[in-house]
């Protein structure tokens, strides 16, 4: 895997951007400054960013609802998501939806789905269209370990296998489906066993090591882009926060969370970058300062930004049928 310094720093930036975004989400949610709820991804930055890092701009990303990292990597901005937290007009969907429904047609982002599993079958459709067009574009569909037990996911994986579709199903195995630990939801030990069941190759990555995630993705992408059908990638990761902003996160020993925090994927990647001499501590610190400022600016702006115009909303033709 030969990645430029620029690319590596971009990956670092989006991992840190994800971290700060999630930290601020927690604060805003706790202080009841934002609407709805949040679904934090702290601890999973290497997985989310790393999965999307090697996609081409014309590849389709179909993320889970816990993937701001992948969304930032694919080109959404801090303001796109922060504006959505406040349901303001400056957010990506202009107050129409929560963050867990965010898509971007031009950036080739299919929306995540709170109806778990639903996005896997839809992602197949983009892959089917690419195959029909004879194009070498591919699709990345990301889900959590919990979502992988939906019927739609089983149908999607078998369908993609049978139709030889250019799609990667990536599973962010973060050890808990909301409150339920992995062992209570699965009799398998790794998702590679599922891949075998569908007759497709399975890969496994250390989801706390973004270099490993990217390395595995490079291999999976080569397989899929080469027209050899779908692949499954499992990333072993861990969620620090509760499932959502309302989750008191009391179903696991706090020491377990502390243990995973010692292995912080951002600190780990930063340490790698400086120790192998790709960049200096100062360069990383400058990126962090920039990102923090960017998130703060987006929050301050969104707080006072207008809500969507009511009259315009109900006249808007996204409410109506297409011509």
């Amino acid at each position: 895997m030969d990645l430029s310094k620029e690319k590596l720093l971009e990956v670092y930036r989006h991992m840190y951007q994800t971290r700060v975004f999630e930290q601020e989400c927690e604060k805003l949610n706790k202080n009841k400054e934002i609407l709805g709820s949040i679904h934090g991804s702290m601890g999973e930055e290497a997985t989310s960013v790393g999965l999307a890092a090697l996609l081409r701009p014309d590849d389709v990303l179909s993320p889970s609802y816990r993937d701001p990292g992948a969304l930032f990597m694919k080109g959404l901005t801090t303001m796109d998501l922060v504006g959505m937290l406040f349901a303001k007009d400056c957010g990506k969907t202009k107050g129409r939806t929560r963050v867990l429904h965010v898509g971007d047609f031009r950036k080739n982002i299919y929306p995540p789905n709170p109806i778990l599993g639903a996005s896997s079958v839809i992602a197949n459709g983009a892959a089917l269209a690419f195959k029909m067009n004879g194009s070498d574009r591919i699709v990345l569909n990301i889900m959590g370990d919990g979502a992988s037990n939906e019927g739609a996911v089983h149908e999607a994986m078998n369908f993609a296998a049978v139709k030889n579709l250019p799609i990667i199903f990536a599973i962010e195995n973060n050890a808990y489906a909301w409150s339920t630990p992995f062992k209570n939801n699965f009799k398998i030990h790794t998702f590679i066993e599922r891949a075998i069941g569908y007759g497709i190759p399975g890969f496994i990555a250390d989801g706390y090591d973004v270099m490993d995630v990217m390395q595995v993705m490079e291999e999976a992408i080569a397989h899929v882009r080469g027209g050899r059908g779908p692949a499954l990638v499992e990333c072993r990761t861990y969620r620090w926060s509760g499932h959502s902003g309302n989750d008191k996160n009391v179903y696991r020993p706090w020491e377990e969370i502390v243990r995973w925090k010692q292995n912080c994927p951002i600190a780990r990647f930063g340490g790698y970058l400086t120790n192998v001499g790709i960049c200096s501590d100062e360069e990383l610190a400058a990126i962090r300062t920039e990102v923090e400022q960017e998130v703060q600016d987006a929050i301050e702006y969104s707080k006072t930004a207008p809500y969507p115009d009511c009259g315009e909303f109900f006249r808007d033709d996204v409410m109506l049928a297409a011509e």
């Binding site: 047609f105 299919y110 639903a118 896997s120 079958v121 839809i122 992602a123 197949n124 459709g125 983009a126 892959a127 089917l128 269209a129 690419f130 029909m132 019927g151 739609a152 149908e155 999607a156 078998n158 369908f159 049978v162 139709k163």
Partner: peptide, 27 residues
């Protein structure tokens, strides 16, 4: 390629058609 037989998977069939329609196909 134009008249596609599928596994018995109504969700996968319909979902793939939603995703393909978003790419400009007319399933």
């Amino acid at each position: 390629d134009r008249v596609i037989d599928t596994p018995i998977s109504e969700l996968a069939i319909t979902g793939a058609s939603v995703g393909a329609a978003m790419q400009g196909k007319r399933p």
